[in-house]
Design a binder for these strands. Structure first.
Lengths: 117, 117
DNA sequence: ATAACATATGAATAGATGTTCATATGAAAG
DNA sequence: CTTTCATATGAACATCTATTCATATGTTAT
């Protein structure tokens, strides 16, 4: 009898396991969810998002505001856009970015509440 | 005149910049926030958290439920606990973990909404 | 005490990720 | 059309992180 089987019969309450298994979202959804949070899980991106809380900003503005290189900001904005967290609006040579939807504020808001406790 | 200065005077609207700068949280808070989201940004940890949505589970249960090694689960639960996302309750040889507070559900819920759109 | 078991921990390795550097694209101005 | 500027992109490098393996801790039962 393997270690795994042993443990299963000792610890697991069948009903609980079945209940949990039946209510777990699909792996793909969980993967996507983790990918989304990964996007929030970087100081640079969080700072960019927070800056966009207050105003729409172009890449150049953002990089100066936050003391980052233009390239770094551009790379991160690309990731934010790919995950539909920001929107881009082109105006001449500039590209202005803004928050994409209300989820961004809500997710960050909840996170901040947790951190500040 | 450096590239940076050039850009600043061309793109930045002083009022906007001042407004954004004045409303940015402290770097420390933003760092902590990113650290928190980093915790959510891993498939294994998300799966563990979701499993705990439905029931309190011991390490062994969790590892079998999710098809992970005991060690991997233990390492991840340690991180979740350090970030106050789960609670531990010792009962004999077993340690039962459960969600720590309502923020966890809310943050994950918001994230799932965004992903499912 | 000793064996069996659940959990935790430390070190090592492999894979992922952010920044930088160099360069490309595309738009406005001269 | 050539220059200047804002932005984007690709490759390389350095750092971080999750898993595994080996082992330690602490609890229960014999």
């Amino acid at each position: 009898m393997s270690e795994i089987e042993r443990c299963e019969f000792l610890c697991v309450h069948d009903e609980v396991v079945k209940k949990v298994l039946s209510q777990m979202p699909k792996d793909e959804a969980l993967y996507d969810l983790a990918e989304l949070f990964k996007v929030f899980g970087d100081t640079t991106r969080i700072r960019i998002l927070y800056a966009l809380f207050e105003a729409e900003l172009c890449v150049c503005d953002t990089s100066q505001l936050l003391g980052l290189s233009q390239t770094a900001v551009s790379h991160q904005l690309r990731i934010l856009k790919a995950n539909r967290l920001v929107r881009a609006r082109k105006e001449g040579k500039n590209v202005f970015y803004s928050l994409a939807d209300s989820h961004v504020r809500q997710i960050i808001g909840q996170g901040m509440e947790h951190v500040e406790e």
